[in-house]
Design a protein around this nucleic acid. Structure first.
Length: 457
RNA sequence: GGUGGAGUGGCUGAGCGGCCCAAAGCAGCAGCCUGCAAAGCUGUAAAACCACGGGUUCAAAUCCCGUCUCCACCUCCA
């Protein structure tokens, strides 16, 4: 089976053929650590984690998933100043928030390079662009350096736009020649902290947005790598500019471009400027981390995903269904391989990561397994299939909240007393105990052999 | 104005020429289980006439033309 991916540059499905056989290099645009993460960031992280996970588990390739951290940027400086903190401190604390969310969603990258660690690489790249005639220092004598968009005939190739149609009303300024030229290096400003300025051949300053990704992909993955990903809203100008400057510098750059769809709230894009972002806290109040991950994966990665509390509730129910099947199993297989995957699942995943269709196969296996268990048949084949599919999707059902030991002991004791009462057919007492247990915020479930319990909500 | 994407049952959401009298999940209904519940499991209805109007084809949700509506990018954003 071959994996076909929708390449958003050529706008068609293409068979995935890695540059190095058996190895995939993926670069995904991570956060600019300026303010707390929101649902949109999580969707992107989960989408590309599933991509990496599928290539790794489903195809047995080695995968290097890189997700950068842009830790120097206008907004970081602005927000830090507004909060009266050092910009580095803000960047570090916001990054910490991102990391903890990524971790709870099982969406960690293999490598997370930071922009500020690659300033030297960026300066070298800018010098290279200048020497090749694709960049220029500002005519006003400042340290500003711009990419010369007119010098690069392919500018606009990623988003299929003609450069003439992009020049809006904006007047060239800061020594910039054309509206479509963009900053590679920004001169230091007097109202910005000294710590946010670096020495360069053009004077004190800091990198423009876009250049960090070109520098880091080259340093970390080389001049030619397999997949570049990110949110759809990064296609232009960010990725278009990245592509232009990298190609103009003489690099082949990415073979495939992938863009995940955006998250909306009530049909409107969730964005910082609209202020309608759903916070991570708010999201995690609606369901567990697994349920949230399931919800984020429940629509195809290129579709728009609309947020609502009930959507997460549905995901919670779907996850519970799978969990209940696993609970019913005498044993959940741990050592699974791609060969345990149902072929329909493989077909779905290979078709540009059709996770919704893959989840349908997962539920089919769960239902078939339940039927077998109901008739006291061995459900081991279904168990293996389910375990393998969960693994392929990197859905970790086990990540449950830990329970206070004292509470657990009390509940266990009450359940034992209730069991005695039921054995003695003293149902009035049994019901009183059940009520008492519910007062502890715990729901119990009777099965044929035992009583299980779980925390409410 | 330019560049893309979308409109499928009560809801979410796949399918993108014949396997579709349209997957899966949720909700609904019924049965099983239970001391009773809850939970769970199983099964299952409906006009889903696949936004609307034409067309191509032996065959269309799927292709073509037109219309309507919605969304995104073209400014910082995953």
């Amino acid at each position: 089976m071959t994996l076909s991916l929708f390449d958003s540059q050529s706008q068609q499905l293409r068979a995935f053929e890695p540059i190095t056989p058996g190895c995939a290099s993926i670069y995904v645009c991570g956060p600019t650590v300026q303010s707390a993460p929101h649902v949109g960031h999580l969707r992107s992280a989960v989408a590309f984690d599933i991509l990496a996970s599928w290539i790794r588990f489903g195809h047995g390739f080695g995968v290097k998933l890189v997700r950068n951290v842009t830790d120097i940027d206008d907004k970081i400086l602005v927000n830090a100043a507004a909060q009266g903190v050092e910009w580095q401190a803000l960047a570090v604390s916001v990054e910490g928030e991102f990391n903890s969310v990524y971790q709870s969603l099982s969406a960690d990258a293999d490598l997370t390079p930071h922009a500020t660690a690659y300033i030297i690489d960026m300066i070298a790249l800018i010098e290279r662009l200048i020497s090749r005639g694709h960049a220029y220092q500002a005519a006003d004598g400042s340290a500003n350096v711009f990419f010369d968009s007119a010098s690069w005939a392919d500018y606009g190739e990623l988003t299929n736009q003609a450069i003439e149609s992009m020049e809006g009303e904006e007047v060239a300024s800061h020594g910039r020649r054309r509206a479509t030229d963009f900053a590679l290096w920004k001169a230091a400003k007097s109202d910005e902290p000294d710590t946010a300025a670096w020495q360069s051949p053009w004077g004190l300053g800091r990198p423009g947005w876009h250049i960090e990704c070109s520098a880091m992909t080259r340093s970390v993955l080389g001049e030619h790598f397999d997949i570049h990903g990110g949110g759809l809203d990064l296609r232009f100008p960010h990725h278009e500019n990245e592509l232009a400057q990298s190609r103009a510098a003489g690099f082949e750059f990415a073979n495939y471009w992938m863009h995940n769809g955006l998250v909306t709230v009530g049909g409107q894009k969730m964005s910082k400027s609209l202020g309608n972002g759903v916070s991570v806290e708010e999201l995690f109040e609606q369901g567990s981390a697994v349920a949230v991950r399931y919800w984020l994966a429940s629509a195809h990665y290129r579709s728009t995903l609309d947020y609502s509390p009930s959507a997460v509730a549905e995901a919670t129910a779907a996850v519970a269904r799978i969990q209940n099947f696993v609970k019913r199993l005498p044993e959940m297989p741990t050592a699974v391989a791609a060969s345990d995957l149902p072929s329909a699942f493989v077909v779905a995943m290979d078709a540009d990561l059709n996770v919704p269709a893959a989840l349908a196969v997962l539920h089919d296996s769960v239902r078939q397994g339940n039927v077998r268990l109901d008739s006291n048949q061995d459900a081991a084949p279904e168990a293996r299939a389910v375990a393998a599919m969960l693994r392929a999707l990197n859905l970790n059902l086990a990540s449950e909240v830990s329970v206070d030991a004292d509470l657990a002991a009390r509940v266990e004791e009450l359940i034992a007393r209730r069991a005695d009462a039921r054995a003695n057919r003293d149902f009035e007492l049994a019901d009183r105990i059940r009520h008492e247990i519910s007062q502890l915020g715990v729901t119990i479930e009777d099965t044929q052999t035992k009583t299980t319990w779980s925390l409410n909500g």
